[in-house]
């Protein structure tokens, strides 16, 4: 029953988020601040992880191709597919559920504990619109961060080839261009938009409706990470089946 209640409350929160909007002159500052906190502030970790995971995918693929009949350009092909289809949109989002999600939950949760949300409500401000809406809009730029992650993942693979000698750069580039299906990029960005919405709203839900003190803020952050990751993985399965399944 609690789960059903929370699911209902989550959708009511989303509905409430769009009611009685905050003045645009205030909202635009909130959006820019959240873009800085949530997107710009995450670029470093996304770039770092993408580059090295791209390199590791390349190394693992190259090391597991022992049959001489399998062409070496497959390394580039496998890296491209892995990075574009799954690593960049899905696994980076799971990592972001930890970084961005816990930041959102703890910042909103602390506002709840210190009565700052009550202060907004007493002033007649729609606190959900004021707190959650700008984060949701800011995270709509998340696909740009993921695009950078895709690029750096593939670049990381290329660097691994160059420095580790697993295959030639020419073979790697041929692999990148082999059987390229443009819809895979669309599929990947569609998933990223959905994950961005989940990344903004589930952690906000856990922060906004938390009860208790400082210890509960920590607990809410952990719960928020778990649920955000679970929902991302489930949606990943559903979206993949819908968009790529036969």
């Amino acid at each position: 029953m609690t789960y059903l209640h929370n699911i209902g409350l989550y959708f009511l929160m989303i509905k409430e988020m769009f009611r009685k909007p905050t003045k645009w002159s205030v909202m635009k500052h909130l959006i820019f601040k959240d873009i800085d906190d949530l997107i710009i502030g995450s670029l470093g970790i996304i770039a770092f992880i993408s580059f090295f995971v791209g390199g590791v995918i390349t190394i693992q693929t190259a090391l597991n191709i022992s049959n001489p009949l399998i062409p070496k350009y497959l390394v580039g092909f496998a890296t491209r597919q892995s990075v574009i289809l799954e690593f960049a949109p899905t696994f980076t989002s799971v990592i972001m559920a930890g970084k961005v999600g816990s930041f959102i939950t703890s910042s909103i949760g602390t506002m709840r504990v210190t009565e700052q949300i009550d202060a907004l409500e007493v002033m007649g401000i729609n606190s959900l619109n004021y707190l959650v809406f700008p984060k949701t809009i800011a995270l709509m730029l998340y696909p740009f961060a993921i695009a950078i992650g895709m690029f750096l993942g593939i670049l990381g693979g290329m660097a691994a080839c160059y420095f580790g000698g697993y295959t030639s750069i020419d073979d790697y580039i041929i692999g990148l261009q082999t059987d390229f299906i443009p819809f895979h990029i669309i599929y990947s960005f569609l998933k990223t938009f959905v994950f961005a919405f989940v990344l903004a709203t589930i952690p906000s839900f856990h922060g906004y409706y938390m009860k208790g003190g400082a210890l509960e803020v920590g607990k809410a952050s952990t719960t928020s990470f778990v649920w955000t990751a679970v929902v991302i993985i489930l949606l990943n399965y559903i979206l993949t089946d819908m968009l790529l399944g036969s």
Binding site: K20, E115, Q116, V122, G124
Partner: peptide, 19 residues
């Protein structure tokens, strides 16, 4: 209700200033 609340000032126990 929200319009009415714009006429209300509140001093919270912990001040509730936006940190």
């Amino acid at each position: 209700k929200r319009d009415l609340r714009a006429d209300i000032g509140m001093v919270f126990q912990g001040s509730a200033l936006f940190d």
